[in-house]
Design a binder for these strands. Structure first.
Length: 221
DNA sequence: AACCAGGACGTGA
DNA sequence: TCACGTCATGGT
């Protein structure tokens, strides 16, 4: 079997299903993963929530993005209409815990306008990329976890791991790394969703502090 | 107390 | 194209 599929099997066996993307549960008042359930998001509100979370977590830990999302949720503002009508001052204050709050407030406004223009259709990748504040990873995260398009998400961890394993060159582009994964995987939404989440989980264990890759079991074999 | 976290954009070479 | 600065809060 090829390396890409071997890595997937190994990570899945080690960590199990990750159940991304976490969604707010009104009953528990917390954000929850949904391991083994690939039917989500189940409605438009959840689709929008995932997109907002994808912007808020840019270069920020998920727990910080979660705080910002919870702040929005608490004032019942995790919706397109609420975000559009909120002032920039109010919006940036509400999402402050996620960092880069001025930029992200603008990004949320810009994206929400675009989101409304979709009228519940699925955006093309290039369309998402044309929105200010939506780059490669954010676009792919939205497509994969919100719109359920089997597109591979590459993040800094992905690059760090495959580069460290010698599978790619350190200066390969986003699109090259993405293509490297996609050419070896069948376009299965479950596998794509789990693969990226597993990479993040694995990176948190073995690729977050230097020297990167210490104790990484992907190296033995 | 430096470093990092589920990046993207603007600028100058 | 690409290397580098900027944006910013909160964990460890």
């Amino acid at each position: 079997m090829d390396v890409i599929n071997k890595i997937y099997k190994t990570l899945h066996k080690q960590y199990g299903p990750q159940g991304w993307w976490p969604l707010f549960n009104a009953k528990t008042g917390k954000f929850e993963y949904h391991k083994g359930d690939y039917s989500l998001p189940k409605n438009d509100a959840q689709r929008f929530e995932i997109c907002v979370g994808a912007i808020l977590t840019q270069n920020t830990s998920w727990v910080q993005a979660e705080k910002a999302l919870l702040n929005l949720e608490k004032i019942n503002a995790l919706s397109p209409n609420a975000i559009l009508k909120m002032s920039m001052e109010k919006l940036s204050a509400i999402i402050k815990p996620s960092g880069y709050f001025r930029q992200k407030a603008k990004k949320l406004k810009e994206f929400t306008k675009f989101y409304n223009s979709l009228n519940s259709s699925i955006p093309k990748r290039e369309e998402l990329l044309s929105v200010w504040g939506i780059g490669n990873e954010t676009a792919d995260s939205m497509l994969l976890y919100s719109f359920k398009v089997p597109t591979f998400v590459v993040d800094s961890y992905t690059k760090r791991i495959v580069s460290s394993l010698g599978l790619i060159s350190a200066k390969d582009s986003y699109d090259e790394i993405k293509a490297f994964f996609e050419k070896n995987l069948k376009p299965d939404i479950k596998i794509y969703q789990e693969y990226h989440a597993l990479i993040v989980e694995h990176a948190k264990h073995h690729y977050s502090k230097k020297p990167y890759g210490s104790g990484c079991f992907l190296r033995k074999g």
